[in-house]
Design a protein around this nucleic acid. Structure first.
Lengths: 209, 209
DNA sequence: CTAACGTTTGTCCAACCGGTCAAAAATTTG
DNA sequence: CAAATTTTTGACCGGTTGGACAAACGTTAG
């Protein structure tokens, strides 16, 4: 029961892409209800009825955006497997997630907006696809713990803490920059964050005695 | 140039309180633009014009809510000082922040919503009061590092990571519960989180050799 | 009691917003 | 070229929303 991909002309492909790009910008800064079709249309350089010719409802745009988002968003976690050294593997997962926060902050905020409001549109995905993937990776991590490669702890909360710390630099960007001030809040903040997070996750705060 | 607190009757005090409580509920789940005065009025058990008698504009409600929020929200950080053992002090800061995420999730989400949208209404506070406070506490932490009481690292990013990991359990609650599932996602999740975070921040993930 | 003051409500309005529609303009096809 | 098809637009509509307003109602002080 797969919905057949609608046949589309070259113009339709391009215009739909243009609209999605504009909608990402608008939705991620104003939220779904805070955004208007007019805003998206203007950002995409077309009239409202014209936009509605490509996406018949506002929700359709959001839904399409959401579906694409989740694939790329979970890619770093999918890559996590136990073919390498566990600590190295986790380190590079953290690095990849932080890079995504740096390079795709709009996507991160779009996702955060959706979750904050109770995930009305993607709840099935969270309980299904996401949960399965996390359980799978938690099992891998548990294996590392049993083998004594990393300290035994809760794999699920470990994953949460990686999500939280990395996405923080996208979702709370304005706060981070405000607190760091003009001097330290520049482009270097992501490298500082990377250094800090690596140390935190590997060694914690206890001083080496 | 302090604005004098308006003289208010008993009824005004009570009704304003009622409205703010209702508005916290509505704003924190729908965002500012996603919430209507009617919704707040209904949640407060009064008519819309009646509500507008106590707060003349929708923004006034949000602003009042925001001002109160920030005081209580930063209280745990204010309590952090160097009269105790540094590691213990940080541990109890983390615990307090996690308790706030558990006990005041609506406040956390209200704040997150505001920051996500670029903090249009509280930016001066972030650059002023908040930044000053964080700088002050960062200095305390730096002192601990110089004294060899905790491992040397970036105090600002340390504070960010504590905020991120603890608030995650309020802001991303639906995701946390969806991923943990009905069994592990119950009331015990905050204790699991507390245990995990303590271990993470103190010892990190490297196994004890 | 009654005048003054505080509170509540029904009604109304202008702006906004999501979405429709028919007709014009542009593009593709034969 | 001309017909068929796709794309674009201006005008419009019904519902919602923030907010104004005056009248009604309740309360309190003299």
């Amino acid at each position: 029961m797969e919905i057949p991909a609608p046949r589309r002309t070259r113009i339709q492909q391009e215009k739909r892409e243009l609209i999605l790009e504009a909608a990402l910008e608008v939705f991620s800064t104003n939220g779904f209800r805070g955004s208007t079709i007019d805003q998206i249309a203007e950002a995409a350089g077309m009239s409202k009825p014209n936009l509605l010719y490509y996406f018949r409802r506002k929700e359709d745009i959001h839904e399409t955006l959401m579906q694409r988002l989740l694939d790329t968003w979970l890619a770093p976690l999918r890559e996590l497997d136990d073919i390498g050294d566990p600590l190295t593997e986790l380190r590079s997962y953290i690095r990849r997630k932080l890079e995504m926060a740096r390079d795709f902050p709009r996507e991160s905020r779009l996702f955060a907006n959706e979750i904050l409001q109770g995930a009305p549109r993607i709840m099935p995905m969270l309980e299904g696809e996401l949960r399965t993937l996390v359980d799978e990776k938690a099992a891998v991590i548990k294996g590392w713990m049993r083998a004594g490669k990393i300290a035994p702890t809760d794999p699920w909360h470990l994953i949460f803490s990686i999500w939280a710390t990395t996405q923080h630099y996208a979702d709370f960007d304005v706060q981070v920059r405000a607190v760091l001030g003009p001097d330290r809040g520049g482009d270097g903040r992501f490298e500082d964050a990377a250094r800090f997070l690596e140390q935190l996750f590997i060694d914690g705060l206890k001083p080496k005695s």
